[in-house]
Design a protein around this nucleic acid. Structure first.
Lengths: 120, 120
DNA sequence: TCATATAGGGATAATTTTATCCCCGTTGTC
DNA sequence: GACAACGGGGATAAAATTATCCCTATATGA
């Protein structure tokens, strides 16, 4: 990504976890790649709300962090595929845990949001 | 927080989870409060790298999201305590999962960072 | 010949998050 | 009287993240 000016705190496990999966589309990307959606264009079709640009940036970071491997086939038109590394695969249980918590408490959360709106 | 202009996607469990615990100090705050550190000044002492300002903002959001309860004692000098709600307590296993993953892979991660620096 | 699909990225702007600085009022202590 | 501790927050700046727009290049099919 761009050059960062505030050093990260790497002593805390949580900050490392968030450094790796904290991007807006990273969990989705990891999930999709794990499900076999490997090509950039397919990933983009799978997440139309994200820009190609951002997906590329995030994929680059995931690659830099050792979560995915990028394979460029020397053909034309170009073909690229991303694969989850073994390291990246260790994230899957964590991601589903986070996803599950959010889904379980989505009703609670949305209820709160509605009440807040009424109060305002 | 400030007024947001880009609507959040509330269909995805992951986005709700990150909405709730995604702030820079939120997991630390939840963790500290769960451990019995309840007063704002104590929380600040516990996380000196964070500003009082940011801690207040984050605590406010945690309160709005129903994760903590704020109790203001009508005394002088003022006394305030935060408590984890039952809802907030359901976050604890998730947070320790994230914390554990980060700690487990901290060596791997730091090794990668070193190699990247050498390459540059 | 022209549109489309493929993968990528530069330049810049908008948005969001976090940091910095300084202020308020009260009580107790030196 | 001066000062620290308590909890809080306004105004503003910096930093980080994400969005928008447009361009490169090649091959295929209409």
């Amino acid at each position: 990504m761009y050059e960062k000016k505030i050093p990260k705190d790497l002593n805390c496990g949580m900050s490392i976890t968030l450094e790796i999966i904290g991007g807006k589309w990273k969990p989705c990307l990891i999930d999709s790649i794990a499900k076999g959606i490997r090509r950039p264009s397919d990933l983009h079709r799978n997440h139309p709300d994200a820009t190609k640009r951002v997906l590329n940036l995030h994929l680059k970071e995931l690659e830099d962090h050792g979560v995915v491997t990028k394979i460029i086939y020397p053909v034309l038109p170009p073909k690229v595929e991303y694969f989850l590394t073994d390291f990246g695969a260790t994230l899957l249980p964590l991601i589903s845990h986070m996803e599950k918590w959010g889904s379980d408490y989505m009703p609670v959360f949305n209820e709160l949001q509605r009440n807040k709106l009424k109060a305002v």
